[in-house]
Nucleic acid binder design. Sequence first.
DNA 1: CAATGTAATGTTATAATGTAACAATTATTG
DNA 2: CAATAATTGTTACATTATAACATTACATTG
Lengths: 144, 144
Amino acid sequence: MMRHDLLIHDEQLCKQRGVRLTCQRRRVLKIIMQSPLPVGAYDILQKMDPPAAPPTVYRALDFLLQQGLIHRLATLQAYLVCEHPDASHQSQFLICSECGQVEEMEDSNIQKSLDLAASQAGFSCSNEVVEIMGRCVQCAGEGH
Amino acid sequence: MMRHDLLIHDEQLCKQRGVRLTCQRRRVLKIIMQSPLPVGAYDILQKMDPPAAPPTVYRALDFLLQQGLIHRLATLQAYLVCEHPDASHQSQFLICSECGQVEEMEDSNIQKSLDLAASQAGFSCSNEVVEIMGRCVQCAGEGH
DNA sequence: CAATGTAATGTTATAATGTAACAATTATTG
DNA sequence: CAATAATTGTTACATTATAACATTACATTG
């Protein structure tokens, strides 16, 4: 279920940037990659073998977030891999309340409408959180 | 700083709906209304006089959220009054990282772009979280 | 009004998420 | 190698939220 090419890609990306994807950071990243659903920090913690303490996990998460290799879902307080960790970008997320699956989007219309509304209010954005809860195609298809 | 008319409006709204804005619920609501910034649940807890326990506050918050009288900011884990608690609506929030002020918007363009993107993905939304971090007009105006 | 059921609150304990502070170690650089 | 910076280890704790069960207030209906 894990995309090994993505891990290699992330490693190269860090090399290019002159930042270190250390052992602990890679371990945390791999755990997130191997999960089909967003994982909480303490889920990650439990999967750390050999075991680690919370700060180790949170530091790794901070690094991975800064590098854009993962995202954090504010509504779920959970983490998931970024599917296109190249350029800096704003993503939007479709979160299925039924199956828990999350789809990452980079929708330029949403982006434009957010930026427009913000600038009309004289507001200069640094960061945008867009998380849409509902039912995904599969779950909606399965009736009721 | 508190809009007393809003409290009255909320009371009437609850009466119309046949739900009870009880003493505890009103106390929590008033604390949120009296705060110029979003407040955390434990800030509210501290302001409860006579004192209360966490479940009391969280139950009141749940009620107020369900009735649409307040909103919860997922990024801040904090609560603020809804400025137009009449019809059910989706709001977007501009959150200033400098002064902490939050502006509630109901932007139809944002709404449309979100709904369109979701429906294109076959996703049926039940709830949308849009929180934009940055600097508000005042803070941006104050240089650097 | 009394009896009964439902809704709301009280109370205690604990779960889940995240961070502060400082020590120890590992990399990097001059 | 020595000095410095970056990373990790470790302990303790802060913050946010909920579970479980007892009690009280309210509403309804006979």
